[in-house]
Amino acid sequence: MSHHHRNPVHSLAGPVEHCSLDLRRKLIRESPFFSNLEPGQIDEINSRFRDVGFSANKTILREGDNADSLFIVATGLVKLYSASGDGGILLIDILKPGEHFGSVAGFGPECYEETAVAAMDCCLLKISSENFHRVLTMHPQVAVRTVEILSHRVRFSHELMRRLGSYSAENRSAWLLLRLGEKLGRPWEGKNLINAPVSREELAAMIGITTETASRIVSRFQKKGLIESGRGWIAIKDPEGLKKLTEDVFD
């Protein structure tokens, strides 16, 4: 493991309990739920959302609680966890600004299917089920998009777990690092730095392997020159080398 670098991960955190009007409009306009609406309609929908702030490591919602709100990440990162069948906890995803989580009554399960935790100080836009249904009454096309978006997310996560389960720990680890690099990466010293605080335990939890196995694989990848890593960070040096390990996972 490389120790000559301090942790290069940059915080994406912003003001914890305030999002500017311009940022709110941008997030709502670019959200897949509302992307086809006019500026005046976006402003009306914006009035239905409220800012909520969470400091690092605070729980935002819990798996099993009544599903009554939809959230959009404005600043910071949010980690989604779910209980596994053997009583453990799986890290399902890391959400960046612009991504959504949660659910509202009438669309999908009545209870949240995951626990959401602030990975760092973050500001979120939150809309209640009641206000979301008011939006649907005024803009029926949003209802169609909502069904499409939420059902696709469930199908994708089930298909992902089914397919990953049949591949080796090394295949899965390579695929996960590439996915995180694509989603959260930023250029750093000629490499692609995964710009999120991710521990070995969490890497393991995302693909259903032990922490010890994840640590061995990270060390092996580093020796092969595929990645560089330190405490709490990983940078991809050779994406093509990692891709060769994943060619038959998602072809």
Rank of each mutant, 00 (worst) to 15 (best):
L90D: 14
R155M: 12
S31F: 07
D93V: 01
G87M: 08
F49R: 09
S157N: 13
A83P: 02
N57Y: 10
S82H: 12
E114S: 15
A119K: 01
G85Y: 09
S35G: 00
G108H: 08
S31Y: 02
E148R: 13
L160P: 00
I149N: 10
R50A: 03
F156P: 00
L80G: 12
L70F: 15
E110Y: 04
D93C: 03
D51N: 14
F33H: 13
S157F: 11
Y112C: 12
F132W: 09
G98N: 05
F34I: 10
G87Q: 06
T137I: 11
K96R: 15
L150Y: 10
T137D: 13
T59I: 14
T75I: 00
L136I: 15
Q41R: 03
G40V: 07
I72W: 11
G64I: 10
G53Y: 06
H100R: 11
H158Y: 09
R145T: 11
F54I: 00
G102L: 08
C123H: 04
S103E: 10
M161L: 13
S69Y: 10
H133S: 04
H133Y: 02
N46C: 15
E63F: 01
C122M: 06
K58I: 03
F34A: 10
I89V: 15
G108W: 03
R134A: 01
P109I: 01
M161N: 09
H152R: 09
A119D: 11
K58M: 08
N131L: 06
L125I: 11
D43C: 01
R62I: 01
H133W: 09
A83D: 12
D68H: 03
E44L: 15
F107C: 03
H152V: 00
L37S: 07
N66V: 14
A119V: 03
T137E: 14
M120Y: 00
H139T: 01
D121H: 13
F33S: 10
I127W: 01
A143R: 10
V142H: 10
S31K: 02
L136K: 02
S35Y: 11
D51W: 02
N36E: 10
E99Q: 15
E130C: 07
F107Y: 14
G40L: 09
I42S: 06
K58F: 04
P109W: 05
A119P: 05
I42N: 07
E148W: 05
R134C: 00
